[in-house]
Computed example of a mutant assay.
Amino acid sequence: MKKLVIAERSLLVGHIISMVFGLAGLLIVLPNAQFIASLSEFGQLVFRWSMAGGGASYMVLATAAVAIYAYRLFGLRRCLTFMVPAVFLSLGSELLGTSTGFPFGHYRYLSGLGYKIAGLVPFTIPLSWFYLGFSAYLLVRVGLESRGVATRWSLISAIALGSLLLTSWDFVLDPAMSQTSVPFWIWEQPGGFFGMPYQNFAGWFGTGVVFMTVATLLWPKTPLNLSREQLIFPLVVYVSNLIFATVMSVGSGFWIPALLGWVVGVIPAIAFFTIAKSRSDVLAENLQESVLQSRSQQSPTFPAGLVK
Rank of each mutant, 00 (worst) to 15 (best):
A160R: 04
L165E: 03
P223F: 08
G162W: 00
G192T: 15
F184K: 14
W185T: 11
T216Y: 05
P223A: 09
Q189C: 12
F171R: 01
W169T: 07
W169N: 09
L231N: 01
G208H: 00
F205I: 05
P220V: 10
P190C: 14
F194W: 15
I186C: 10
A160F: 13
L165H: 04
F211W: 06
Q199W: 08
P175V: 05
G203M: 04
T167H: 04
L161R: 02
E188Q: 15
V210A: 10
T222Y: 09
F194A: 12
F211L: 02
L226M: 12
Q179A: 13
Q179K: 11
I186M: 14
P175C: 08
Q230H: 03
G206C: 01
G206V: 01
Y198L: 15
V209C: 09
L161K: 03
V182M: 15
N200H: 10
S181C: 05
L166N: 07
P183T: 14
P190N: 14
L235T: 01
K221N: 14
Y198N: 13
E229R: 11
F184C: 09
V214P: 00
A202F: 13
A215P: 02
F193D: 11
L224A: 06
L173I: 10
T207M: 01
S227Y: 02
V214L: 10
V210Y: 01
N225S: 12
I156S: 10
L224C: 05
V172S: 10
L231C: 01
L166V: 03
F201P: 04
G162H: 04
F205N: 03
M212I: 00
V237A: 03
K221C: 08
P223T: 08
G206P: 00
G195T: 11
F233I: 03
V210M: 05
Q179H: 15
I186Y: 11
W185E: 12
F171M: 06
D174M: 04
P223M: 08
S178G: 12
F205Y: 12
G195A: 14
P183Q: 14
F194Q: 09
F201N: 04
L173A: 13
L235H: 00
Y198V: 13
A158K: 02
L161I: 15
F171H: 04
G162C: 07
V172P: 06
G195L: 07
F211M: 01
S227K: 05
F205T: 05
L217H: 09
Q230D: 08
S157T: 12
F205M: 05
T180F: 14
S168Q: 03
P234C: 06
L218C: 09
G208V: 00
S163P: 09
R228H: 04
T222R: 14
A202Y: 09
M212E: 07
P197R: 11
I186H: 11
L231A: 03
F233A: 06
R228Y: 02
G195Q: 12
L218N: 08
V209N: 02
F211E: 01
P234E: 06
